[in-house]
Amino acid sequence: MSLAVVLFYAFAIFTVVSAAGVAFSPNVVYSAFALMGTLLGVAAMYVFLAADFVAMAQVLVYIGGILVLMLFAVMLTHRIATANISNRSVGRVPALLIVSGVGLIMGRAIYRTNWVLGTDLPDAPSTYAIGTGFLGTYVLPFELASFVLLAVLVGAVAISRKELRDAQG
């Protein structure tokens, strides 16, 4: 077994264990911190796929931005660690249905995919391919996505600005 394989399994176990921590922890603060392990593990998977840019974008956006935002919300909530949930079993049946449905679809996808064992992935920068892809073949979806993001930004500003809220009553 080569070193890369050992590392791959180490990262895979790390990702799955921290994902389990996110799902099963009774304390939502622990879930939020465990999410960091999951996101880091997924970034490591991207590195194994020779997608260095995507891996770093994952760390930058998800850990540096989204996770911090979530932690922010969690930490500002009063007594969140001792939240008293009166009926834990209420979501069990829908959760079982959804999980088994997703599991079926994923299992089918895994089973039917023609897996290729890549031997040596190119060590070339993936940024060139991503850049030309964004501004070449996929320029329309790229611009549409940026337009949607811009609309969201303007909307967020409009919602949070005090004078605009007051003017509408």
Partner: peptide, 14 residues
């Protein structure tokens, strides 16, 4: 790294 400066910006997030 091919993405050196991005890497440095990203890991600082930890």
């Amino acid at each position: 790294l091919n993405i050196g400066i991005l890497y440095i910006t990203a890991v600082t997030g930890i």
